[in-house]
Design a protein around this nucleic acid. Structure first.
Length: 586
RNA sequence: UGGGGAGUCGCCAAGCUGGUUAAGGCACAUGGUUUUGAUCCAUGCAUGCGAAGGUUCGAAUCCUUCCUCCCCAGCCA
């Protein structure tokens, strides 16, 4: 494992990485040919040696928005290609027209780019669509029928299910299984010509109805679906199944390592079977792609299934796909999560085949870690309480200097106006301080950050007993940055804002969307929604933030990381809290 | 109960063609620095590798049996 000076993981070893290193050192792809674009064996044989050492792919189905789980796969696939001088293709697996559309394609492209990747290798632009391969797939299917490895089944769905057998009992051969190759060829042609109704026929691979692996009991590979495809329109009325399409897509694109999640493990035998048959037919040639499976990401307090995410949006439990509480990439972006934070996260959690649950706080910590380095500091008061400095004159105005970053002086500093009336955060004052509370309380001294040390002389309550005003004396000669500043030591250090200069803004304070560690484990997951996942309120921010733009990110000192919302405008500032700072107090 | 996977520190995760004291990260603990109770730095943190047997001079690594968890019976991906 490589580490840098700060001992952070740069890239951890995992079984896929190890396999690739081994494959490369065994010269598996030394003679691999590539003819500029995807194509069958004949096409590739006219090409030249593939300059990409390996080829991986990220193959989303455009039927939803990308989420944090996809980020793991994206960093894995694109990261591997980058590390091994290879190419990673972005491929839309659009073989089911009923669920897919262009909106999703667009958002996926944008998300992958946002995470910092592109699909270019040298002069190639490796952006592909499974739907572009429909002709090849049809040809492959015909080849399979001709060699006796596929047949048109005219049983209906129920009959097929019935005859598939169960986990413990073998299936039964379809009565259509042993008709002549000519018949099957004719029927398949008719299927393609639209002569048969949806569901009336299906093309199946002919393997073994008694296989202990159910996926090998003559899986369906082509179905009739008279629906409009978002890219091919009405050109086709039959569409290939994932099982059949995916290996072909990989092979056409010269993929070397086809990385997917664990649930596809059982399908690897079919993946290999299909490609071998097609190689025997001369449709493909070595080296054939190989499939590898890793454990998908599970995050506590988070739901990542597409079905559930869609439901959250459609039933308006959130404001949309980009609601900052959503685990989607667009949601995370709007929340202020960053690509480098995701990179750190994926490096930190690793890749293996063990089912595991990653605690949500790991993700948050990664964002904190990254933002701590980069975010400029500003001051905000989230729960304003007025503080009066007795011994300042009414018109007192004084510049205080605050560095933009405590560790990086190159980032400069800014001025903040100190006046007689200030806003401080309510939690920074206690009428009767608990043990080890070293903020303000009657008689106590604290430092106004970047300003003077003050001493609390009095406070005022309203009729309901709520504290509404704090009175303090400032101690001359204690101003930050002046020679005598440290003469008086104080433990407390609180932030503040001038009432005269502070700007008002709206803030969205987010908490986890679900209140249960594993939403849906004991209830319907909707019942596990956290009713307090969003708190909206008005806050005070420093004058230097008056022109904050959507996407601008800052650390509000002693509070956390914040980002200006997409909809924020200078005269109507809206800020989202990305995450709080770690807080070991209480 | 068929097939395919997985079980190493609170959470991840290397190691698993047997051979020095079982990597590393996160978390946690204790010190130190600090004008963010943040950050940062230092130190500590598995006689143990799901369990029990066995092979061996030597086992997380090999063998046997057992236990637990996940996935598969869509004309979804």
């Amino acid at each position: 494992m490589a580490t840098n000076q700060k001992n952070k993981i740069i890239s951890s070893s995992n079984f896929i990485r190890a396999k690739i290193e081994k494959d490369i050192s065994n010269n598996l792809y030394k003679n691999k040919l590539w003819n500029k674009i995807p194509g069958n064996g004949v096409h590739q044989s006219n090409g030249s040696l593939d300059e990409a050492k390996i080829r991986t792919r990220f193959p989303p189905e455009p039927n939803g928005y990308l989420h944090i789980g996809h980020a793991k796969s994206i960093f894995l696939n694109f990261g591997l290609a980058k590390d091994f001088s290879g190419a990673c293709h972005l491929r839309f697996d659009d073989t089911n027209p009923e669920k897919e559309n262009q909106e999703y394609v667009d958002s996926i492209i944008e998300n992958v780019k946002w995470l910092g990747f592109n699909w270019n290798f040298k002069k190639e632009e490796n952006l592909y669509y499974a739907s572009n391969y429909f002709d090849h797939m049809y040809e492959a299917a015909v080849l399979l029928i001709k060699s006796g490895f596929a047949y048109v089944d005219q049983q209906n769905a129920d009959e097929i299910r019935e005859n598939r057998g169960t986990l413990t009992t073998p299936g039964k051969d379809s009565p259509w299984r042993d008709h002549s190759i000519e018949d099957h060829l004719k029927w398949f042609t008719e299927m393609r010509e639209g002569k048969h109704a949806d569901g009336s026929m299906v093309l199946r691979a002919k393997i073994n109805m008694a296989s202990p692996n159910i996926n090998l009991r003559d899986p369906a590979i082509y179905r009739i679906k008279k629906s409009h495809h978002h890219r091919t329109g009405d050109a086709w009325c039959i569409y290939p199944m994932y099982t059949f399409a995916h290996p072909i897509e990989d092979a056409l694109e010269g993929i070397t390592h086809s990385i997917c999640t664990l649930e596809f493990e059982d399908q690897r035998p079919f993946y290999d079977w299909l490609l071998r048959r097609l190689k025997e037919n001369g449709f493909f040639s070595d080296p054939l792609p190989k499939q590898y499976e890793f454990a998908r990401l599970n995050l506590t307090y988070v739901v990542l299934s597409k079905r559930r995410l869609i439901e959250l949006v459609e039933k308006k439990h959130v404001s949309g796909w980009d609601d900052p509480r959503m685990p989607t990439i667009v949601g995370a972006k709007r929340r202020g999560y960053t690509p480098s934070g995701f990179k750190l996260f994926t490096d930190r959690i690793g890749v293996s085949k063990a089912d595991s649950w990653i605690d949500y706080t790991i993700l948050e910590d990664c964002m904190r870690e990254v933002l701590n380095e980069s975010a400029h500091r500003r001051v905000a008061v989230l729960d304003p309480l007025k503080l009066i400095i007795n011994n300042f004159s009414e018109n007192h105005e004084e510049d205080c200097f605050a560095p933009n970053h405590p560790k990086n002086k190159d980032l400069g500093k800014r001025t903040i106006k100190l006046t007689k009336e200030l806003w401080i955060d309510r939690e920074d004052f206690m009428e009767e301080p608990v043990a080890k509370y070293f903020r303000l309380s009657p008689g106590a001294q604290v430092r106004l950050r970047y300003g003077y040390v003050i001493k609390c002389t009095d406070f005022e309550k309203d009729a309901n007993g709520k504290i509404i005003k704090i009175f303090c004396d400032y101690l001359p000669d204690t101003k930050s940055g002046t020679p005598g500043a440290d003469a008086i030591k104080v433990k407390g250090n609180i932030h503040w804002l001038s009432c005269k200069y502070a700007v008002t803004a709206k803030v969205n304070l987010y908490d986890r969307l679900f209140k249960e560690t594993h939403p849906g484990d004991n209830n319907n997951y909707i019942d596990d929604l956290n009713p307090n996942s969003l708190t909206t309120k008005e806050i005070k921010i420093e004058e230097n933030l008056s022109k904050i733009l959507p996407g601008d990110q800052y650390q509000f000192e002693r509070h956390g990381y914040f980002i200006a919302d997409n909809l924020s405008k200078p005269d109507d500032i809206v800020i989202n809290r990305t995450t709080t700072l770690r807080d070991s107090w209480q």
